[in-house]
Structure formats: structure tokens, C-alpha cells
Design a protein around this nucleic acid. Structure first.
Length: 370
DNA sequence: TAGGCGTGGAT
DNA sequence: TATCCAAGCCT
């Protein structure tokens, strides 16, 4: 007796490409059907889109393009400017590598992105997916482009039982078996568009799918269970104290985080150690022990909560106003109120700023109205 | 090789 | 509210 797989047709790339020609998404970084893609824009967008939604990346892409119209402009910019523009987008090593990559393209390749996958792979922040994507989309090279969308599509097409991430090599090999020799860039983008709009993680719209017929998971009716995934570790909660120090003129005490690691190179208010063992119910004197300077600390009501990829964070906020002439402690600096928005402040610390301002705000506006 | 590394939106 | 997840890379 024949298995289900033997009765199914092979996935036809031309069916997918025909679908793509009718339904391709118009995206800020994507060339029109009759245009040649700009490698700089393809690269910039691919970095921004790593683990990031199209919606979130869009405004950042346009802003970057405005500030840095080409790779030379980006390479010539201080890293600090890049981090400021990237603030809020997350995964900040991408911004640091973006800058390093721009400089590498200038130095190693005379300012022109290489078209060979192996050369792309050698650039900072460019891994197997991104190298293949740039080669295929920007240079029409026959690279096998496998991202999360493609993994989902292919795991369903072939009902791959192996769990992620171990199944990745198998999925890439399977993708290679269905990739056409022609239009590699369009095929890559078509597969990703299919995953993003039809073959979605939940409730895939199989009735609209150009690969409905050859899909083994669909034939079995358990398409939503692919790709198989191992259970993920639970997320601990760390706690810590943030110190909001203001001068009478509204300037706030800020510092820069170490250049690598979590939020590397980004701006922060001084904070103490973040740990599961910190007790936010401790008395004020205890919470003030890690303060950057001695002051008349006041604990703000409430807690700032934030969720990172691998832990959650609860921050108590201690606030103080210090004399105008107070020097910034070593490693810290005063940032004028109007300059704070432009700082490389990640979202977690924008929450701290908002929390502190919200506490001070009503009192200020009240006294101002009197 | 598995864990570090952000964020905000959808369900 | 809790969980999942979105065009991954680096070590």
C-alpha cells in the first residue's frame, strides 16, 4: 500500500513563483519586479529583520536610510550614533555588528558588498541565513535561503518529525531539493512571504496555498503541529534597583553600559546588581547601598517590569534630587532633559525614565498651575 | 552546542 | 494574564 507521501506531487517552484508574482508584499526594502535590488538595502533590512517583525523594522529601516544613505556613510559614523538610531529595536549586538560590517565592507571590499556567499558569511553579524539571503536577493545567486518561515513551510510540506533546532540541517537539505535554478531571489522571498502570510504558525490558510496539494502535513491534517519543537526552559525573574538622580535643572544622571553583553554600549541610569536573590521589600537603606552617590533617596511607588528573551526583570526605582553643582561620579554623566529622548536608551530604561517622570510630573504641573 | 541576546504584538 | 513568536548570530 502506498504511503501518503508517495501519492503526493512534488512541490512545484513555478506554482509558488506564480503565486508570488500575484501576491508579493510591497516592502520598503524590496525592489519592484522590474528593478535591481540594492545590496546595501537588502543587507540593512536583513539585519533588522533578524528575529524582528516587518512592522517593527519598517520605521527603523527608513530612518537608517535617511541618516546613512549608503554603506560609506554608515561606516564613517560613530558607533554611538548607530546605537541611538537602533535604540528600541532590540538585540543590540546587531547594531554593533552592523557598524563593524559596514567598516569591513569598506576596508575589505572597497565599499561594494561581495556577492559570494562565503565572503558574505565572513562579515560581522552575517550568518548562514543572511549570507544566503543577500546572495540570492541582491545578486541573484542560487543560494538556499532558510529562515524561520522556510523552516515552517518545509517542515509541513514533508511532515518532518525531528524537533527544532536539531532538524535545521535536514530542513535546509529539503529546501535545496525544491529550490529552482532560476529566480533564486524571488523563490527565497516567495517562500518567506508564503510563511508570513499563508503558512503561518497558527491557523495556516491552507485553502489559499499554492502548495496545498504537495503538503504532507496538510494531507494528514496536522499542519499546525509543525515544526516540532522541544519544550523551552522557563524564564526566571531577576530583581534590582534603578537610581534616578536629577539636578534642579532637570538633567539626569546616566552612564553607558559595557560595550558587549546585555544591552551592550547602550545608555542606562545607574542600577545595582540584577539577581533573583535581590529583595525589593528590603528597607530603603538597604536598597540604597548600591547607589552611585549619597543622596536623600526616596523610593518611588510601584515597580518597573520588563521581559527580556531569557529573564524577566523587576526594577525598584529610587529617586533623589541633588544640588546643581554635583559632579557626575566616575563613569557617569549628566544628560539634559531635552537630550534624553535622543540617547541610546533601550526600552527597559525608557520605562524607568517614564516611571520617574510620571511620579514627578503631577507635582510639577500642580505647582506650575498655582 | 546550547544558551545569551530585546521588543512589542497577537492570541 | 501567560505564552508564543518575528527574515538569527555569536560564543
Amino acid at each position: 500500500m502506498a504511503t501518503a507521501a508517495e501519492t503526493l506531487p512534488a512541490p512545484d517552484p513555478s506554482a509558488l513563483l506564480a503565486w508570488y508574482d500575484r501576491h508579493r508584499r510591497r516592502l520598503p526594502w524590496r525592489a519592484e519586479a522590474d528593478e535591481r535590488a540594492d545590496p546595501y538595502r537588502v543587507w540593512l533590512s536583513e539585519i533588522m529583520l533578524q528575529q524582528t517583525t516587518v512592522k517593527a523594522a519598517g520605521p527603523y529601516f527608513l530612518r537608517f536610510l535617511q541618516h546613512f544613505p549608503d554603506v560609506a556613510a554608515l561606516a564613517a559614523s560613530p558607533l554611538e550614533e548607530v546605537l541611538k538610531l537602533w535604540a528600541g529595536l532590540g538585540y543590540y549586538s546587531r547594531a554593533r555588528n552592523l557598524h563593524a560590517c559596514a567598516q569591513a565592507v569598506m576596508e575589505r571590499h572597497g565599499g561594494a558588498f561581495p556577492s559570494a556567499e562565503v565572503d558574505l558569511l565572513a562579515l560581522p553579524g552575517v550568518g548562514p541565513y543572511t549570507a544566503a539571503a543577500i546572495a540570492a536577493i541582491a545578486f541573484d545567486r542560487p543560494a538556499v535561503v532558510v529562515d524561520g518561515n522556510v523552516e515552517r513551510v518545509v517542515s509541513r510540506l514533508f511532515a518532518v518529525e525531528a524537533a527544532m533546532p536539531g532538524a535545521k540541517p535536514r530542513l535546509k537539505a529539503l529546501t535545496a531539493t525544491i529550490a529552482p535554478a532560476k529566480r533564486p531571489g524571488d523563490f527565497a522571498q516567495a517562500t518567506m512571504d508564503l510563511g508570513a502570510t499563508i503558512c503561518t504558525p497558527r491557523k495556516p490558510a491552507c485553502a489559499l496555498c499554492p502548495w496545498d496539494d504537495p503538503c504532507l502535513a496538510r494531507a494528514r491534517g496536522d499542519q499546525e503541529s509543525f515544526p516540532r519543537k522541544a519544550a523551552k526552559a522557563d524564564r526566571p525573574t531577576r530583581r534590582g534597583v534603578a537610581y534616578w538622580v536629577e539636578r534642579p535643572d532637570g538633567a539626569a544622571l546616566m552612564r553607558s553600559r559595557p560595550p558587549r553583553g546585555l544591552l551592550g554600549g547602550m545608555t542606562e541610569p545607574p542600577t545595582g546588581v540584577w539577581s533573583e536573590t535581590v529583595d525589593l521589600a528590603a528597607p530603603l537603606g538597604r536598597l540604597a547601598e548600591e547607589a552611585p552617590l549619597s543622596a536623600d533617596w526616596r523610593r518611588l511607588p510601584g515597580v518597573v517590569t520588563h521581559v527580556f528573551s531569557h529573564f524577566a526583570l523587576d526594577l525598584a526605582v529610587l529617586a533623589a534630587v541633588v544640588p546643581q553643582a554635583t559632579p557626575a561620579p566616575a563613569g557617569a554623566r549628566w544628560v539634559a532633559r531635552r537630550d534624553l529622548d535622543g540617547e541610546a536608551l533601550p526600552s527597559v530604561f525608557r520605562k524607568v525614565v517614564a516611571h520617574a517622570r510620571a511620579d514627578a510630573g503631577p507635582a510639577r504641573s500642580k505647582s506650575a498651575s498655582l
